[in-house]
Design a protein around this nucleic acid. Structure first.
Lengths: 195, 195
DNA sequence: TTTGTTTGTTACCGATAGGTTACATACTTT
DNA sequence: AAAGTATGTAACCTATCGGTAACAAACAAA
């Protein structure tokens, strides 16, 4: 290219990964694809990152999914509002990040050290929140964990699916109206749970 | 092979598709794979089915995912028990069918007429149930739809993920203990909702 | 200036994918 | 029996994948 600059080249490669992930998902990140999109010879991918696996690990590290995500840390007077806020934040995170949706999809078909690391961090964050809610509410860890699992899994599923499918179980998941209804449903549930 | 028998050959091909789907998912169903597993020359796949797409369409039709699934049709005196039974049946269906789990996973990355047809049927079934529950309970369609979406999406997500991941949000999803907890959570929710 | 190293490209390799052509043989029909 | 059709296989074609070797040029150090 114009100038010799390893850092810039590495960044170009990483940027290409990001583009591919957002557009087609992690499944489509291959040496040739990255080389083409970045405009960099694929030899350099191996030279600078070792392998596609390691390149993706670096990408995940850089983009820091779930690692530094700051959730509302119990700045609410009551557990009910706190619970509602947590899942509102979770929904917002997935809404704003196509890469995160692609990451969750990728998890269904792939297992590797980078993914497992992310899962561990996610579990840690979840446990922290579950513990806090359990203590404040008096509900058992299993109870709070069950409810959390139910809602987060659901939201994740619907966001992943929404990229390919407009309606699920009568809910329009490809526009805001459906998500408003879902949010309202979650609020309703918490109203009933914390009566 | 030993004898010339088109029907048997077609069946062998379809059986091979089934094996591949269960073992590796729809993503892995290609001409070469099907030819190898079935022991049939790949030319015949094209000759008898036209393409892999059409072969998969036939497979889906034969195996009839979701098309003729009979759900408990309101043989309960109260809506609460009926609701619980519905989702218990849904969980059971996914637990017993690895192919269905693979189908749901495939939906995330693929769109084709066969899948869309299945989605339509699924929506029809869902709407029927939602209508019935709404009428019996007095809850609005949106309310019942929201709750149904939340639970079915969640269960689907967890079952798909369970093939690659042991724990999600503090819940063990790769053994019965986790699923018992989730079932218990769903029951708890309905107890709160139908107070 | 010369020597060695880093950055980069081109061209190639083997494996595997989807897809087709050509051919052999069994069965049907007349 | 002869002709035509249905069933099957082997071999091949092209495209693309991951991966590497060989080479060119810029830069740093001696």
């Amino acid at each position: 290219m114009t100038k010799r600059d390893r850092n810039q080249t590495e960044q170009r490669i990483l940027d290409a990964v990001g583009k591919i992930v957002v557009a087609e998902g992690f499944e489509a990140v291959g040496v040739n694809a990255v080389a083409n999109v970045s405009g960099v010879s694929k030899v350099l991918i191996y030279r600078y990152f070792g392998s596609i696996e390691q390149l993706l690990a670096k990408y995940l590290e850089d983009n820091d999914f779930w690692l530094n995500t700051e959730f509302p840390v119990m700045q609410y007077d009551n557990v009910k509002d706190f619970s509602k806020a947590i899942f509102r934040a979770y929904i917002d995170m997935l809404r704003k990040s196509p890469a995160l949706r692609k990451l969750y999809r990728w998890e269904f078909t792939t297992n590797n050290p980078a993914i497992e690391k992310l899962r561990e961090r996610r579990e840690q964050t979840a446990l922290k929140i579950i513990n806090a809610v359990s203590q404040q509410s008096g509900f058992s860890l299993d109870r709070v964990g069950g409810i959390s699992t139910l809602i987060t899994a659901s939201v994740s599923y619907l966001y992943i699916l929404s990229e390919n499918c407009g309606v699920y179980c009568s809910l329009e998941i490809n526009n805001d109206s459906g998500w408003d209804k879902l949010l309202e449903t979650i609020d309703f549930m918490f109203d009933k749970i914390f009566d």
